[in-house]
Amino acid sequence: MSRVGWIRLLVVGGFILAIELLCRTGMISPRVLIAPSDMAIRLYRLLLSGQANADIIETLGNVAISLVLSVSGGFAIGAAIHALPRLRRAIDPFLASYYALPFFAFYPLFIVMFGLGRGAVVAIGFLFGVVAMIIATLNGFDRIPRVLVRTAEVYHMGPVAAALRIKLPSAVPYLFTGVKLAIAYCFIGVIAAEFIMASSGLGYAIAYAFNNFDNGKMYALMFFIIVLVTIVNALFYTYERRLMRRWGR
């Protein structure tokens, strides 16, 4: 590992250790926060007991479905918008302010449209993820070298063929950023929807534990989500770095 990597490990480790000490010495009351080691132990017991397995599988399934939908949908919509410059100029400010809208409020609408169950949660995850992907696709397509676009014209490629065979591969680094953001946003959307509204899933389990003063279970699940998202991020980060190095960027 590089020097920077070691310092980073030290910083994160020091931070966790500081919280651990503050909790263990009673400076932070266990009613507010339990020690990280305690969270890990409780999580281990929770996973062994199998109580949370159904919620975990449900949430991960919801994230996966909404991720697939938002990445493929976002790419298709982004490609379509990019092909229409007038629409694109008009839509830009709306895309930029999109994330300020509280979509969770549309949950009742989605229940009417998709029924009770995972459809409504997936729809909110999709709404969260898709725009990050659209913006990344637009950014990527903006930076395609002109010569490649000309090549597509010379070969008389149709819009779909050009999008899939020329634009998709040459915009990959930007699309990668979009996928990374879409993962983050799908997690945020799905868990927030479950937290506020739904009646199953990890987000719901955390809100339920909070309402029942069950701090142990609540922090165990929060710990699980934080560790899971961090691992997913770290994997993508290393993979992206390797990809970039291979392409010499």
């Binding site: 993962i183 868990i191 927030a192 987000g203 929060m222 934080i226 998202v229």
Partner: peptide, 23 residues
């Protein structure tokens, strides 16, 4: 040192931390 840490904090579903803030 800070960039990956900030980026991963950015992508955490922060709703999960809301109970902590309420407490």
């Amino acid at each position: 040192v800070a960039e990956p840490i900030l980026v991963s904090v950015y992508s955490l579903p922060k709703v999960t931390l809301y109970p902590l803030i309420l407490l």
